[in-house]
Simulated scan of single mutants.
Amino acid sequence: MIRPSADLNVYLCREPVDMRKQIDGLALLVQEVMDLNPFDQALFVFGNRQRDKVKLLFWERNGFVVWYKRLERERFKWPTHLEGDSVTLSGQELNWLLDGVDLKAVNPHKALYFQCVG
């Protein structure tokens, strides 16, 4: 299965998208609705209203790539707890989303930053 690397920028469109949209329609959504550049080295994620289908859009050197996943049962657990029209995810969070993990429930420990010991 194709999965993004953990360090790839991932932008999730929060609003449902008509899955009949193809590359040009999705790229236009990235540009006009999400206010992002579809040619950036980033992955753009779209889901339908029923949350059983997802499309990913990616610019790869000389053309767009679209990846489509349809669930036979269950639903993607779309992150409703995050703010904004588009949400930034890590590659790992996208992998969890594609696997059916609820991102709201996954709550790792906070990173700690110290200046000195003791």
Rank of each mutant, 00 (worst) to 15 (best):
R70N: 15
L71A: 03
G84V: 13
V87D: 04
L97F: 06
L71K: 14
Y68T: 03
S90P: 15
E83I: 07
W96R: 01
L98C: 00
K77I: 05
R73K: 13
V101T: 09
Q92K: 07
L82W: 06
R75M: 07
V65L: 09
R75G: 03
G100E: 12
V65W: 15
R70Y: 04
G84N: 10
L89S: 04
S90W: 00
V65R: 15
D102M: 04
K104G: 07
R70T: 06
W96I: 09
K77N: 13
V101N: 06
V101P: 13
S90R: 01
V65N: 14
G100K: 02
E93K: 01
P79R: 07
E72W: 04
A105Q: 12
D85N: 15
R70Q: 15
N95W: 08
S86D: 06
Q92T: 14
L94G: 02
G100V: 08
E72F: 10
E93F: 02
E93T: 02
G91Q: 11
W67P: 01
W78E: 02
G91E: 07
T88K: 03
L71W: 02
K77D: 01
T80N: 09
T80R: 14
L103T: 04
S86R: 06
K104Q: 15
T88R: 09
E72G: 15
V66I: 14
K77F: 06
G100R: 12
F76N: 09
K77W: 04
D99K: 05
